[in-house]
Design a protein around this nucleic acid. Structure first.
Length: 442
RNA sequence: GUGGAUGUAGCUCAGUUGGUUAGAGCAUCGGUUUGUGGUACCGAGGGCCGCGGGUUCGAGUCCCGUCUUCCACCCCA
């Protein structure tokens, strides 16, 4: 009986696995470069962890079930709740700021479409225990460095930066209630893909209809602010709101940091970004392809209340982001930024015939002990076949162990790229190969 | 969860208005007389035509169901 894999789950054949490892390797390197520490957490968690964070509606998107002990559990749909628990329960004893990252598989029970499967990997980076904009700047910079590390530059992507706190203060100054504010922000989040009539209708359901027109106007104005100076100008009329003025100072300070770090060209001010769920409390950002075609490459923001909510008594400010692998790989593909030879080896030992086989195996073993990646034919084959194999497996050098040369205590080293061949004695073999891999000369 | 499409060798696809043993290219493996590689030529393996029903003398082809994949909504931590 043929048994298919579960819908939305992925198998990684060697090429795809090599690609995945390339991504992870690069992201790890950049994260360490920023002195973030790697952590990991369970793949399976109590269902309540996610309900507590996001509300009961979330269960519809979870890969959840009951285990044999009758516990309601769920595969993790994201890393943040587990992170918040880990940090929260040791909060008192951890040196701050806490700069952590992880790379892990996440699961969501959803209908699949382009860029969205039921299983995917996320790179997560978070800074906890630092409330200043220094943490926000560090994360935005890290996000940009991660994408740059994979070969993307400012012509490929940008980071749209917004501020949920500024929205909140603005709407508060317009005397909307807490509930209305979160409703309005939900509408702002969808406004890009909503017709004006629907937008109006949605707002009518939340606030007094007499206020809808002026609010719609405000929303349009604010969404149009695409530079720091315009944001400053627009909100400078709120002189009486100390909070808004202080917030503008934060903006200035954040931009100064981003400029000093050399990432300002990647930043687009865009207050239409407010991110779906309500727990974000400050700066939020999403990375997009410049073309604007595909879904977000990455997203994140500040969530100062979440740790305390999940671990009462351990309040801790936090900000973080996640990069998903599916959209990222799509993006790298369209820009032809995937490495060509992910699978290759240093050496292929070509064995002339049955008489030379054991000598050849000795050479294979010796080079493997020295740390080279070495391949060879597992059965006797003629030279032609073996060289073809070596070439198709992207071996850099072939070592040809033939009877004629062996009689003189020699072997041939062949550069598989430019087809040059030299004869060296067995004693000099290791030295010659070493030399080739250090200075590229045979 | 709603709606629309899709499904034929490992991959990309042909397959006439239903009609004999279902085809091609690429890939794989073997060979072109046993010491030199991405080319050329020859050959081979490999398909319950997604699965299950139905209509028919006869179904890859038509009908229904189901699953898969894809697209749009919903949602997007």
């Amino acid at each position: 009986m043929k048994i298919d894999r579960l819908p939305g789950f992925r198998e990684f054949y060697p090429d795809e696995c090599a690609l995945r490892n390339h991504l992870f390797r690069t992201l790890r390197k950049v994260a360490r470069n920023f002195s973030f520490q790697e952590y990991d957490a369970p793949v399976l968690e109590p269902l309540d962890l996610y309900i507590e964070k996001s509300g009961p509606e979330i269960v519809g998107q979870l890969f959840n079930f009951e285990d044999k002990g009758g516990r309601s559990v769920s595969l993790r749909p994201e890393m943040t709740p587990s992170l918040a628990r880990m940090v929260g329960s040791q909060a008192g004893s951890m040196r701050r700021p806490i700069k952590w990252f992880s790379i892990g598989e996440q699961f969501r029970y959803e209908r699949m479409q382009k860029g969205r499967l039921r299983s995917f990997y996320q790179f997560n980076a978070d800074v906890l225990g630092e409330e200043g904009v220094g943490a926000d700047a560090e994360l935005v910079t890290l996000l940009i460095a991660c994408l740059q590390g994979l070969g993307l530059n400012e012509s490929h992507f940008h980071v749209r930066l917004s501020d949920r706190n500024l929205w909140y203060l603005f709407l508060e100054s317009k005397r909307f209630t807490e509930n209305q504010i979160s409703g309005i922000l939900g509408v702002v989040d969808k406004s890009e893909r909503m017709s004006p009539e629907k937008l109006r209708a949605a707002l009518c359901g939340i606030i007094d209809s007499s206020k809808v027109d002026s609010l719609l106007e405000n929303i349009c104005e604010i969404k149009a602010l695409d530079e720091l100076d315009k944001v400053r100008d627009y909100f400078s009329e709120f002189r009486d709101s100390e909070a808004i003025q202080k917030r503008l100072e934060n903006w200035g300070s954040l931009f100064d940091s981003l400029e000093a770090m050399g990432v300002l060209p990647f930043i687009s001010v865009d207050l239409s970004i407010v991110r779906g769920l309500a727990y974000y409390t400050g700066f939020v950002f999403e990375a997009f392809e410049r073309s604007g075609k595909s879904r977000a490459l990455a997203g994140g923001g500040r969530y100062d209340n979440l740790v305390g909510k999940l671990t009462p008594g351990s309040d801790m400010t936090a900000t973080g982001f996640a990069i998903g692998d599916v959209t990222l790989v799509e993006c790298l593909k369209t820009h032809e930024l995937l490495p060509k030879y992910l699978d290759s080896q240093d050496l292929y030992v070509v064995i002339g015939g049955p008489q030379e086989r054991l000598t050849g195996l000795g050479i294979v073993g010796a080079f493997r002990k020295l740390g080279f990646s070495v391949s060879y034919s597992l059965k006797d084959q003629n030279l032609k076949k073996q060289l073809k194999d070596a070439s198709q497996r992207n071996a850099r050098l072939a070592i040809i162990v033939g009877s004629d040369e062996l009689d003189q205590g020699m072997v041939l080293i062949k550069d598989m790229v430019n087809r040059k061949e030299v004869k060296v004695s067995m004693e000099n073999l290791v030295r010659s190969v070493d030399a080739f891999f250090t200075d590229g000369k045979l």
